[in-house]
């Protein structure tokens, strides 16, 4: 491992806990995030579960500071999610945004943005390409990759900058089982190395494999926030029960 970001660009290192208070986000006359209170502590792996349109992606973008809330407070260890905080985080979007450059250049770009010097960038890019199984595609234009390869590149790029916090929005949604496993191993290893992971997923199996705790979102609210064993064995909310039972949750 290279050094943590703190020495590289002086960014804040201890980002946890994340405290969210009465978070509201409205758009188009709809209350899409409807009063969320949540505390995420250090040292756990959190999974955000919920049906389509429940506000999972919005919530991730809000806590990452990409969109301003209508009201409420977000604090990463007391700091609002601005540029400084983001320098210690990385996010993988539901639809990966890859630059119109080569696969390797996409990783290099993120490293440069995070202040890695040239030698470190080269070594780190190569390492990440190998870990993501993309080294044979290094010189390819990133936009020509398959959907699954694009997701792997997006994750490799996010992990490359050695974030303290990694926000993942359905990072395996278009991967085959083998590739999913491979990605999960990458994420699990990052978690072991101390990266605080917040994973949004639809995949209940993935949530079971991965979660220490589950946040279940339903219609912009937290229907349930519980340790994984509790959530999966005896979910407290009706919405979560039907979701886990594979019923239609609307």
């Amino acid at each position: 491992m290279l050094e943590r970001p703190i020495t590289r660009h002086g960014a804040v290192s201890a980002l946890l806990p994340l405290v969210v208070e009465d978070l509201v986000f409205e758009a188009g006359g709809r209350r899409l995030i409807d009063g969320i209170d949540l505390t995420l502590e250090a040292g756990r792996r959190s999974v955000i579960l919920g049906p389509n349109g429940s506000g999972k992606s919005l919530f991730l973008r809000l806590i990452h500071g990409l969109i301003p809330p209508t009201s409420g407070r977000i604090a990463w260890n007391g700091r609002p999610p601005g540029r400084e905080v983001r320098l210690s985080q990385a996010m993988v979007f539901q639809q990966p945004v890859l630059l119109r450059r080569s696969v390797a250049a996409n990783i290099d770009y993120a490293l440069a943005a995070h202040g890695f010097d040239k030698a470190a960038r080269r070594a780190r890019t190569e390492q990440m390409l190998i870990e993501a199984g993309l080294e044979h595609l290094a010189r390819q234009p990133a936009r020509r990759l398959s959907g699954g390869e694009q997701q792997r590149l997006a994750l490799a790029r996010a992990l490359a900058v050695e974030p303290d916090v990694l926000l993942l929005d359905e990072p395996t949604s278009s991967l085959d089982p083998h590739a999913t496993l491979r990605i999960e191993m990458l994420i699990a290893r990052a978690a072991q190395e101390g990266v605080r992971i917040v994973l949004v997923t639809h995949d209940i199996g993935q949530a079971r494999r991965f979660a220490d705790e589950v946040v279940f979102l339903h219609r912009g609210r937290i229907a349930e926030h519980a340790p994984a064993e509790v959530f999966f064995d005896e979910p407290g909310s009706e919405a979560a029960r039907s979701f886990l039972a594979g019923e239609l949750v609307l």
């Binding site: 973008r61 990452h64 500071g65 990409l66 540029r83 983001r86 320098l87 985080q89 990385a90 996010m91 979007f93 945004v97 630059l99 119109r100 450059r101 770009y109 993120a110 943005a113 995070h114 900058v161």
Partner: peptide
């Protein structure tokens, strides 16, 4: 690109350079 570049904490000037290049 906007949110991805925000996520990477890319500054204003670098953002313009990136967009022009891409």
């Amino acid at each position: 690109y906007s949110e991805q570049l925000d996520s990477l904490a890319v500054g204003r000037l670098a953002r313009i350079g990136t967009l022009l290049y891409d």
